[in-house]
Each structure stands twice: as C-alpha cells, then as structure tokens.
C-alpha cells in the first residue's frame, strides 16, 4: 500500500515559495558552483534561502561553502543548520567523506527520506543542486517536488550541450518549467549555445566567462562574492 513518506514531503515544502533546481546533462560544467553562488546571491538580496545538495555520489557544495562541523538539529525531523546565511542540507552530514555507492532505487529512497525528514520552514527560495544527467534522481525530484523549476547549466562545448539538450527536451516533455540556461566557463564567446537554446523556445540567461579566481575562492564565500563569476551570475538572481 502507500508509502507514508510521500505525504509528508508536500507538507515539508508547503512554506517554500519557489523550488529551483540547478541541473546539467553533463558533469563538470560548474553546476554546483552556480547553485551555491545563486543561493548566496539571493541571500545577499535579502531573501530567505535554502540549499539542498542532492548530488549524492559527488557532493560539492560543502566544499564550495567551506562547511565543516555542522550537523542538523533533531526536532520533529531535522532542522537544516545555517551555513553562511543559507539553510543547508547535504548528504555529507551523514556520509562524511566516504564514497556513497548508491544504485537507482537507493538514490530514490535517499531522496524521499531526506525530503520527508527535513523541516525547511518558510523560505523564499530552495535551491537544489541536482546530480548531472537524466537518471533516477532527476525523474524522482520532478515527481516528488511538483512545483520545481529548472535552471540548466552548460559549457560552450558542443559535447556538453548535446547532453544538456537531451535534459532540456526531457524536462519539456515532462512539462517542467525551465527558467533558462546558463552558459558557463566561456572563453571564446560564440552564438552556438544561445542559438540552440532559443531554437528550443527557451531563455538563454547568461554567458559567464571562465574565471580562474573561482578555484582560489573555494571554501570562502566572501572571496567567491568578489569573483567575476559571481558578479556575472547575479544577473540570474536579479531576474528570479
């Protein structure tokens, strides 16, 4: 019969105004950087923001934020601890730095479990750092969070964009709102991605230049805020 966890998920998200997933068809395009910087940028603008890292096999947002020693408080579920002004949940609270070798059904169950036990409270935005690709995690997240909207990240590479294109088509077929596409790590500006995105009837949000300073800013949100990457991404947070 019914899985009672599913009914709780709706309630856990009822006071969240917008749920925005940052996803990509391919790894290595800066998805976690964009998700984290977007969350921080929205916080800078005075919004209440949560950040949920659902990339169980390669979690990265805790490294970008420089989160250490945090652990959720238990209170009728778990309360996300505050990290640099964000209500923050990552599987690394429980897996620490160990590998998390989860197969499809396990991924689904872990997502359901985290969504069912986490009490976000009132939020303007919940930013979700998605695992790359169009596998179980993406399909489950769409199924479990019906109000979710997507920002999709790509690089200028045709290889990356071909995977991103598949994700965009899938999301369109699922009827999921797509806020638009961020082109990241741009070294030689070119119209290819913009034309492809607009050809799909979608919004091309921003071109973000390759910024060597980002690596130096890992673990230090104050330093991240000063990067060109962060400033260019602010156009997206302003438009949300």
């Amino acid at each position: 019969m019914s899985d009672p966890r599913l009914a709780v998920i709706e309630k856990r998200l009822q006071d969240v105004r917008r749920v925005v997933a940052v996803s990509s068809g391919k790894g290595g395009v800066g998805k976690s950087m964009i998700a984290t910087a977007l969350a921080l940028s929205l916080r800078d603008r005075g919004h209440s923001v949560g950040l949920l890292d659902l990339d169980f096999t390669s979690p990265a947002t805790h490294v970008i934020l420089g989160v250490e020693g945090l652990y959720p408080e238990e209170d009728y579920g778990i309360i996300p601890p505050m990290a640099h002004g964000l209500r923050y949940i990552s599987i690394t609270y429980y897996s620490v730095d160990e590998p998390t070798p989860l197969r499809g059904e396990d991924v689904s169950n872990a997502i359901i479990e985290l969504l069912a036990i986490t009490r976000w409270g009132e939020l303007d935005y919940l930013i979700v750092d998605m695992p790359p690709g169009i596998g179980d995690a993406t399909l489950d997240t769409v199924r479990l969070m019906p109000r979710i909207e997507f920002i999709v990240a790509t690089t200028p590479s045709r290889v990356a964009f071909q995977s991103v294109r598949r994700l965009l088509v899938l999301l369109k077929d699922l009827g999921v709102p797509i806020i638009g596409v961020c082109e990241n790590m741009v070294t030689n500006p070119h119209a290819y991605v913009r034309e492809e995105v607009e050809g799909l009837g979608l919004e091309y949000l921003v071109s973000i230049g390759y910024d060597e300073g980002v690596e130096e800013a890992l673990g230090d949100p104050e330093a991240l805020r000063k990067t060109r990457f962060y400033k260019e991404l602010e156009t997206v947070s302003r438009s949300l």
């Binding site: 709780v8 309630k11 069912a116």
Partner: peptide, 18 residues
C-alpha cells in the same frame, strides 16, 4: 527514518485514504 516524520506521514496518508 525519523519517528515523528513517519508518524506525521502515516496520519496524513491514512486521513487522505479515509
């Protein structure tokens, strides 16, 4: 799973079914 979240889920689901 956290017991309080489970109890809440069971009550919500059973209420909907009823």
């Amino acid at each position: 799973m956290h017991e309080w979240a489970l109890a809440e889920g069971v009550i919500t689901t059973a209420t909907r079914f009823a």
